[in-house]
Computed example of a mutant assay.
Amino acid sequence: MKVIITEDYNEMSTVATQYLLGAMHGQYRRNISITAGSTPKGVYELLVPLVKNKEYFEQVHYYNFDEIPFKGEEDRYGVTMTNLDAMFFGPAAIKKENIHVLDWTNYEMQDQRIKEDGGLDFVLLGVGADGHFCGNLPNTTKFGDLTSRVDEDATPDMVDVLLNEVGGVEEKRPDFYVTMGPKSIMQIKQLVMIASGESKAEIVKKLVEGTVTEEVPATLLTTHPNITLIVDKEAASLL
């Protein structure tokens, strides 16, 4: 695992953007999966003007790697795609035919669909303070799982997790979500994970210096042959 320690959040975002742009360039189709959440906002702010209306990026196809439905609103995007559309797909004017949505209606075919599309070339990931990546929270999926459905009874705090994801509105809280599993992510050709701030210092230390355990799901990714961890100084403060 390559570890890059940057001066601050802005530099972390810049370096991650450079990696992402590098993965997007190519003569043939490029399949990219990107993350929602707060950490990559700086990446998308930098990326949007670089890709908007650029014909030389028309070969890039995008995939979300997890999704949480809004209960009672299953005919619209879920949490992940709503955020990605607001932060990147919309502002960058990405064509609908280049966006391949994972949701609760097609998750069982996700891995086969990606295989038929030629596999994923690159994924930009965040990491939770608890060591989760995508929707692979501790005590939910197993290392050998492909794309899976995770129900609210998976762990004692799952109800609170789902409620938080839909903005604390109880009426919109679903009782499940779907996610690409650890085995699915490990099949991607290149992984880039980003982390920022003191709240991520403990998990960054575990990733760099700890052991691989299902109790800290993201530790599995450190065994990938092409993974880069990009962090700012605060996130690296315990190394």
Rank of each mutant, 00 (worst) to 15 (best):
D232Q: 05
F89W: 08
G22R: 04
K52P: 01
Q112D: 15
M24R: 00
E116G: 02
V178G: 09
S237Q: 09
L163S: 14
E214W: 06
L229F: 07
T213H: 05
P138I: 12
T14P: 01
G197V: 03
Q187N: 14
L50K: 01
P138Q: 11
K200L: 08
G22E: 03
I230N: 05
V150C: 11
G197T: 10
S237D: 09
K115A: 10
Q110G: 04
V48Y: 04
K96S: 11
K115F: 10
P138C: 07
V169R: 15
G72H: 03
V161Q: 14
M193C: 13
T35M: 06
Q27M: 04
S196N: 14
V15F: 08
Y63W: 06
L239D: 02
A86S: 11
N164V: 12
G90T: 02
L46C: 01
D157F: 15
M24E: 04
N83C: 09
V231A: 08
P91Q: 04
E67A: 01
Q59D: 06
D121L: 05
A36Y: 06
I185C: 14
I5Y: 05
M109A: 14
E67N: 01
L163W: 15
I185G: 10
E73N: 03
S199T: 10
L229G: 07
H100N: 13
Y77S: 02
R113W: 12
M81R: 03
G22D: 05
H25T: 03
P49R: 02
D111E: 13
V208F: 06
Q59E: 05
V48S: 00
E209F: 07
E45T: 09
N226W: 08
L191P: 09
D85A: 09
E7P: 00
K172C: 10
G210M: 11
K172H: 15
R30T: 06
S196P: 07
E97V: 07
I227D: 05
S38F: 10
L102I: 06
A16H: 03
T140L: 05
T14W: 02
K233V: 10
P182M: 15
F143V: 13
D153C: 14
Q112L: 11
N10S: 08
E215A: 09
Y9D: 03
Q112K: 13
E55Y: 00
N53I: 01
N64V: 03
N164H: 13
V60L: 00
S237H: 03
